[in-house]
Design a binder for these strands. Structure first.
Lengths: 246, 246
DNA sequence: GGGGAGAGATGCCGC
DNA sequence: GCGGCATTTCTCCCC
């Protein structure tokens, strides 16, 4: 069984080599920065990453209970009979003191990973789908631009309807709420003002819409179109059975 | 050196006992659920928690590159010469297939932690501070309610000014943007309508305000008050030097 | 670096 | 369960 002082040395060497370190230990965590927090002693997972990110995870839950951003400086100190893992981020004025009482396990290794995740089914994918298949929105819709930083702001989809009215489309990948309607309204108002037109249509494209949002939508004279974000793998799976078997 | 089949057995036992498992390994990750993603092979950290949360962390970055929510079901399968850690969440219709090529380290332990984090410096703390010290907002302000689900909506702080005008206060712990102004406007409009009053004041309390937000604020006839979220530990430290030394 | 907006957002509270 | 909203939100993109 290693002593705390041995782990302190292991940790310092690992940090120098930009290794990823995982520590299962009993600790308390004091944080001060954008906010402040204290977490009394308990058994947790501490993760130190190659970019000097620090994460503290409790045995349950999705989200780290405490963390320090990339680029922080970590150090081990022994002070009045207690071991501390101290982390600081001067840029963000954030500080953390972790008091470590006992180490249950300790792993360190340099991890090599240059890969980036490929994600589909985002709001952008929705806009792209409607740009390429405008009949999904409504018959006769003629798209002009997509996901563009126009002079009127960042508009998901922009075009003309079959009667040559300007149309602003706001896409949401989840149930649209009244904030989505406010966003749509903001864009429509901007375009009316900038182009000097009195009538611009607004369409909210989302899988669903909340009742409050729908009330506000109708009040503003906008309309809702039910559209789901595209899922390419799901279609692929229907043929290939890659993620099947559940 | 253990074989992949040994780790598969270790993992299955650990999962049964609701232990926390940390695996350093080379893997690829396929996800399908609310969206879809694929992450090619690389060296990563896989964390399995007691509540059946699954996290995949790359060697850099704050955020897990992939994850499964608490309550997922994990299983190890051997298929056509390949090892898979499969996770499914029927409730959320989410699926993940992790193909594991090599294990660099493996730890499992039951972690005991019933503690909850104590956090201060939130928006709620700001509202509480202004409720208790109304002169920080403006002289003569008389608070009525705080962080309450009123019949007009959820309003941070609500009261009368020295001239007995109704005042709605929206607190932001960060630089206030135009969305904060829109939120304030929404509350003021609601109260005007519900009470049948033509004049209700709106105050935005935040450390700073963006120029766009300030323009909209003045246009609406509202006002800004510079207030920082309270930091109790910082004051404590000034005397006690707990988090000092940086 | 600030502003604006999405996120597989998450998490909390209230109805 | 949905709705509304804060978050030590984080992240990306564009100006």
């Amino acid at each position: 069984m290693l002593e705390l002082s041995d782990y302190a040395r292991l940790l310092q060497n690992a940090l120098k080599k930009n290794e990823v370190v995982v520590i299962g230990c009993t600790c308390s965590v004091l944080y001060s920065g954008r906010a402040e927090s204290f977490l009394p002693f308990g058994e947790r997972l501490i993760i130190l990453k190659a970019d000097h990110t620090l994460l503290v995870h409790q045995p349950t839950g999705n989200v780290p209970v405490n963390y320090m951003k990339p680029g922080s400086s970590h150090s081990i100190t022994f002070d009045e009979g207690k071991y501390f893992l101290r982390s600081r981020n001067l840029e963000h004025k954030e500080y953390m003191d972790i008091e470590i009482q006992g180490v249950h396990f300790f792993e360190n290794k340099y991890l090599e990973d240059g890969q980036k995740i490929a994600l589909s089914g985002t709001e952008k994918d929705m806009a792209q789908m409607l740009f390429e298949q405008p009949e999904m929105l409504e018959m006769g819709f003629k798209p002009l631009s997509m996901e563009e930083q126009t002079q009127f702001g960042f508009i998901d989809l922009f075009g003309y309807d079959k009667n040559n009215n300007l149309v602003v489309v706001e896409c949401k990948r989840y149930t649209a709420d009244f904030k989505a309607v406010e966003q749509l309204k903001r864009y429509v108002e901007k375009i009316k003002q900038a182009k000097g037109i009195s009538f611009v249509r607004g369409i909210l494209a989302a899988p669903e819409i909340s009742s409050n949002a729908e009330a506000l939508l109708l009040q503003e004279g906008f309309s809702f179109v039910a559209v789901k974000p595209p899922k390419y793998l799901e279609r692929f799976d229907a043929k290939q059975k890659t993620l099947g078997g559940f």
